[in-house]
């Protein structure tokens, strides 16, 4: 039950999380998955992550290019665009405005 709910929340905000991580600089799929896990959002499988990245790329919020890394194989690096930055600001504010009252309401139940 918990996993299901978590999955539903993630579906709603994964794109914002990805945009947020790219705000710190360009990155590639596997690195983003690791960063999300480290941040505590939870393990994100490739099957969930890449469709989101492709959708962001298609809508012009990120751009991508294949490049050889310093070490290892060629990877597809994603960068935030100006549109992506605006979407992050806009969507981020909306998320914060949503999550604050939810937290406020739920906190009482948890504490009580």
């Amino acid at each position: 039950m918990d996993g299901d709910r978590r999955g539903q929340w993630l579906r709603g905000v994964l794109d914002l999380c990805v945009l947020g991580l790219l705000h710190d600089g360009e990155s590639y799929g596997y690195q983003l998955a690791q960063a999300l896990d480290t941040a505590g959002v939870g393990p994100i499988q490739g099957g969930t992550l890449y469709p989101v990245l492709l959708r962001l790329q298609r809508t012009g919020l990120v751009t991508a290019q294949w490049r050889e890394g310093d070490s290892g194989p060629a990877r597809k690096y994603y960068q935030l665009t100006d549109d992506g930055r605006a979407a992050l600001r806009h969507g981020g504010n909306a998320w914060l405005a949503f999550v604050a009252p939810v937290t406020h309401i739920v906190t009482k139940g948890v504490d009580g």
Partner: peptide
């Protein structure tokens, strides 16, 4: 491009593609 990206991911992270990406049809 999509296939190459999936291949890169599997090479770096390991793991069973059926768990990482799911069934080929679904992905």
């Amino acid at each position: 491009h999509v296939i190459a990206e999936a291949a890169t991911h599997l090479r770096e992270g390991g793991g069973d593609p059926w768990l990482v990406f799911g069934p080929p049809q679904a992905y």
